[in-house]
């Protein structure tokens, strides 16, 4: 198992900067999720860790060794692709043994390792099948088995669950996490699904347009987004934002005002206030008008129009709201962002 350290990683494809000065440390045995919208550079970063791409600038260390110029095979990484990349003309057994064969591992040893890994992933009875004879979930396990069989120091996964249907995805993600903890392997997991990242990762690195916006535990990322984008990307529904003006502990939003918590007392000027839909009470506070209501059983999502901007709040399902009702919203936890830089204050 290794600790991975990325130092000022920049990657350019021609004129296009796919990654811009990424600094990131991944601890031994840690499950790190790289989270970001499509095209943000997550795969590129993963491929740089794997050694498929070479960074234009910056260095990569595994423990204390500089591996920037090493090819993948000398980094001892296991890689699972989004489409799993199983060799269609090889049986499951052949697929899994291929990496070992390349390392010229002895026959008996191969059999022992395959038995071990297939038992762990519960695919022992699929060994004679071909990839096209497997379901999506089974293919995915084979791909993981192939990555694990060579006992890599790092397991790299590029959206491995995105080709599975929604129910299976939830089942597999729990299993995958358990497996990673059991093996104690350092894992880097690329996903654009914030729920997946929150559920599985020890820490999450949020990437947008090739820049690292925030790194932290799921809780930190959720509760204290350091950037407006992070708040808006995480949570379902995501964080609400309103423009306001802060002055001496008071935040003015349109005609309404709310008091600011202690830590923001000294803030003065135009700000963006963010709050989660769950953290709102209906009562005193920001004035608005009910725009729409969605019932979700025990809860309901009420969309409220505040000064022409939409705000979603989640409230218990027993209260009735009608279109056009005047309501007042009282956020219990807020985060202030700078109006210009959109970073947290």
């Amino acid at each position: 198992m290794v600790r991975i350290r990325l130092e000022n990683i920049t990657k350019e494809f021609g004129d296009f900067k796919a990654l811009d000065g990424i600094d990131l440390e991944i601890e031994e045995g840690e499950f790190m999720a790289l989270l970001g919208p499509s095209g943000s550079g997550k795969s590129t970063l993963l491929y740089i860790i794997a050694g498929i791409y070479k960074p234009t600038k910056g260095r990569i260390y595994f423990d204390d060794g500089d591996v920037t110029d090493l090819p993948p095979k000398d980094r001892n990484v296991g890689l699972v692709f989004q489409n799993w990349a199983l060799y269609p003309h090889m049986s499951v057994f052949e697929n899994i043994t291929f990496p070992l064969e390349l390392r010229k591992v002895a026959k008996g040893e191969i059999r022992r390792k395959v038995a071990e890994v297939t038992e762990m992933l519960k695919i022992e009875n699929l060994l004679d099948r071909y990839p096209w004879q497997l379901s999506g979930g089974q293919q995915q396990r084979v791909a993981i088995a192939r990555a694990l069989v060579k006992e890599p120091d790092v397991l790299l996964l590029d959206e491995p669950l995105s080709n599975l249907d929604a129910l299976l995805r939830i089942e597999v993600r729990a299993e995958l996490k358990r497996l990673q903890k059991k093996l104690g392997i350092t894992a880097v997991y690329v996903t654009h699904d914030q729920a997946e990242a929150l559920a599985m990762a020890d820490r999450i690195a949020v990437i947008k347009d090739g820049r690292l916006l925030q790194v932290g535990t799921p809780e930190e990322i959720y509760e204290r987004p350091r950037h407006k984008f992070v708040g808006g990307f995480i949570g379902n529904p995501p964080m609400n934002f309103l423009n306001g003006f802060a002055d001496r502990g008071i935040l003015r939003i349109g005609k309404s005002t709310i008091p600011l918590p202690k830590e923001y007392e000294s803030v003065r000027g135009e700000v963006i206030v963010g709050f989660r839909p769950h953290d709102v009470e209906i009562g005193e506070g920001i004035e608005g008008e009910v725009y729409s209501v969605e019932h979700l059983g025990r809860e309901q999502i009420v969309t409220v129009s505040v000064e022409g901007e939409m705000v979603k709040v989640i409230v218990p399902g027993d209260r009735r709201f009608e279109f056009g009702d005047k309501v007042r919203l009282k956020p219990k936890k807020i985060v202030l962002f700078d109006k210009k830089t959109e970073t947290a204050i």
């Binding site: 090819p71 993948p72 095979k73 989004q82 990349a85 060799y87 390349l102």
Partner: peptide, 27 residues
């Protein structure tokens, strides 16, 4: 042929010759 097949083999340490023989030509 999906590029990932070739890259996956590369990650496992296969040479161009091995990739040709074991993956590309059979396909």
């Amino acid at each position: 042929i999906p590029k990932e097949l070739v890259i996956a083999a590369r990650v496992d340490g296969a040479s161009a010759w091995t990739i040709s023989k074991r993956i590309l030509i059979p396909l």
